[in-house]
């Protein structure tokens, strides 16, 4: 059964800007930036991006991350995906993870559509035979036709996103993590892709999504976590969380 369980996870991101070390003393920096900055054990200046996060995400969960910019949503997603190892605490994760943070990342502009399908497919961990199966499906969905034999440099941005999206959703995963609009732009993109996305998500056993669009959140999620300054403010159903989120904004 797919799951991700976090116990007392902290993430401190060190600040290595050479200039801030030399010109501004730590005290001044701390006073200016405030709560999120601190000095760690080795007397480095760090930004405390996540603080004491304990969270169980189990099979079947459709979890939304709510919070304003800088609340720690993206960092938490990266910890959930295993990309960021936490500074303290443990991450117990089971199941194949598909992080969809920036789905066009890894695309080569001078390579053809087909070459990109192969390259991206392999980057996503697909074997050659899996890619061979996925190709007709991607051709179908993208409706790019002969364009797939041309360098993707010649594509419009909409065509490019369709291709990236088709590749990212070519193979189902146990755990799907989606950040904002995956770099896909806006809700209009979801309109066009919602059928495929819906199918992709229904085949996954666990979803964590962050988006500023409440509409999308309500469409895909059943439960939400409210993050505030790197801490979990509350976990609950969407109505409760959005009510509390509204209070925080005031």
């Amino acid at each position: 059964m797919a799951h991700i369980r976090l116990r007392n996870v902290n993430v401190d991101i060190p600040v290595y800007d050479a200039r801030s070390r030399r010109l501004i003393s730590k005290e001044v920096l701390l006073r200016r930036i405030g709560g999120a900055m601190k000095v760690d054990r080795d007397s480095r200046v760090v930004v405390s991006a996540l603080h004491d996060i304990s969270l169980d995400i189990e099979q079947g969960d459709r979890l939304g991350l709510v919070g304003h910019n800088g609340a720690g949503k993206t960092t938490l997603l990266r910890v959930l995906s295993g990309i960021y190892p936490p500074t303290d605490g443990t991450v117990d994760s089971f199941g194949q993870v598909a992080p969809m943070f920036n789905i066009s990342l890894g695309m080569e502009m001078d390579a053809t559509g087909y070459e990109n399908i192969h390259m991206m497919g392999r980057l996503l961990g697909m074997e050659n035979d899996e890619i061979a199966v996925a190709v007709p499906d991607i051709e179908d969905f993208t409706e790019l036709g002969d364009y797939l034999t041309l360098p993707v440099r010649t594509y419009s941005s909409g065509m490019l996103m369709r291709l990236a999206f088709a590749i990212a959703t070519a193979r189902t995963a146990d755990i799907v993590l989606i950040d904002e609009a995956m770099g896909a732009g806006d809700a209009a993109f979801y309109e066009k892709t919602q059928e495929r996305l819906g199918r992709f998500l229904s085949e996954s056993s666990l979803l964590v999504l962050t988006t500023h669009s409440e509409q999308l959140m309500r469409k895909f999620c059943t439960r939400a976590v409210l993050l505030h300054n790197g801490k979990i403010e509350m976990v609950g159903d969407l109505d409760e969380v959005y009510a509390k989120y509204g209070e925080l904004l005031v």
């Binding site: 993870v97 943070f101 920036n102 990342l105 961990g125």
Partner: peptide, 9 residues
């Protein structure tokens, strides 16, 4: 950098 911080690679 981009690949290492955004996909499982």
């Amino acid at each position: 950098e981009n690949l290492l911080t955004q996909i499982n690679l």
